[in-house]
Computed example of a mutant assay.
Amino acid sequence: MRTKVGVIFGGMSVEHEVSVISASQAMSAIDKDKYEVVPIYISKDRAWYTGEQLTNIEEYKDLKGLLSNVQKIQLQRDPNGKFLLQKDPQPKFGKKYVDEIDVAFPVMHGTYGEDGVLQGFLELLGIPYVGPDVLASAAGMDKSLMKSVVRDYNIPILDFISLYSSEWRVNQEEVTARIEKELGFPVIVKPANLGSSVGISKAADVNELEDAIDLATSFAAKIVIEKMVTNMKEVNCSVLGDYEHAEASICERVLGNDEFLSYEDKYQSSSSSKGAKGMEATNRIIPADISDEQTAEVQAIAVKAFQVLGCSGVSRIDFIIDLDDNEKVYINEINTIPGSLSFYLWEPTGKSFSDLTNDLIKLALKRERERENLTFSIDSNLFNTQSGGLKGSKN
């Protein structure tokens, strides 16, 4: 019997469409001899659906029509420990569920999918799932937290300041003065917890800074302002594995139309308009045109950051190389569920996209086996020991 893999995608993020593309690629790549793919789509209004039509990227051109022909569901765990896709609403008569799954495979980018929220839900249900756990997802998603963690492990990062939108509104002059003093111009302004370059812009002076912060805070309450490297190379490297063993892919150099790779560069370029190309369509040089020594340095930092953050599955770590400072390498950010699952960085190593998805599922099941040996609750009833009422610690 084949293992049933529930591929979860879509969601309430600005990266919704990117998730649909990545999931479509992943579902096509999964080995159908070993696994049965069960698509699970989350709409922008938080409704969950399943149905074979959801595997066809062309169907999303008429989303209303697509959703009218698939089954609305809720993901539940029954008393027997099975993970069911129950019909929503449940019928009074007949079968109450559509399907069941053995393992979840989140392919969701950004808010509510890559930040630990979905992972926490799956944890509560006890469903084995692909990718990083709650803590690693949250740490990887929050750019400020990620930078603080890796800095403590002597991983090189660019100087940055993080703040909340409320602080900017109340103390705009003080914040501006701090940025000028600690970072100087130009700077890059980013939402702290989004990916795909959404809401990111540069600021060369105080006037541009105000516009950049207004843009970033329209997407997130917490933002990051980072010293900008004007003469640079952007290099990415993928890592596959977990806390015990992790390996790095080859490196790529990404080519944007500006000083940084924008959302439009990644997903709205002419090359990506021909179909579900995702990050695969981004202009890039593979392998990156950097020295063997620098390649090894990037790969080593990537693996270290991946394991320091407690990641599992496949991630993509993005780097900046400062060409005006002896080609110093800085880690920029980590994507714990990267676009297209970074399969294009593994294929040149001899690992096909099908092999990659197989490895990811095996890592999920390995973690589940390890957790079965852990104690999460104690078989006792504290209330049976209470004799004088609910006194708590005072008693």
Rank of each mutant, 00 (worst) to 15 (best):
E173G: 01
E174Q: 13
E174T: 13
V175E: 11
T176C: 03
A177W: 10
R178T: 15
R178C: 12
E180N: 07
K181V: 11
E182R: 09
F185D: 06
F185I: 00
F185T: 10
P186N: 13
V187F: 00
I188K: 05
I188D: 08
I188R: 03
I188A: 12
P191K: 13
P191H: 13
P191G: 13
G195C: 09
S196T: 02
S196K: 07
S197R: 01
S197I: 01
V198M: 09
I200S: 10
K202E: 14
A204M: 13
A204E: 15
D205W: 01
D205P: 02
V206P: 07
N207D: 14
E208K: 13
E210C: 01
D211N: 07
I213G: 04
D214M: 04
S218P: 04
F219T: 04
A221D: 15
A221E: 15
K222Y: 05
K222I: 12
K222F: 08
I223K: 12
E226T: 05
K227H: 10
K227R: 14
T230P: 03
T230R: 06
N231I: 01
M232T: 06
K233P: 02
E234A: 04
N236I: 12
C237I: 07
V239T: 10
V239E: 11
L240H: 01
L240I: 08
D242L: 00
Y243P: 03
A246N: 10
E247Q: 09
E247T: 11
E247R: 00
A248H: 08
A248D: 11
A248V: 06
I250Q: 07
C251I: 05
C251A: 04
E252I: 11
R253K: 14
V254E: 14
N257F: 03
N257S: 08
N257L: 05
E259G: 07
E259R: 12
F260I: 02
F260Y: 04
L261C: 10
S262D: 00
S262C: 00
E264F: 06
D265K: 09
D265A: 09
D265N: 11
D265H: 07
K266P: 02
K266D: 05
Y267W: 14
S269P: 01
S270H: 14
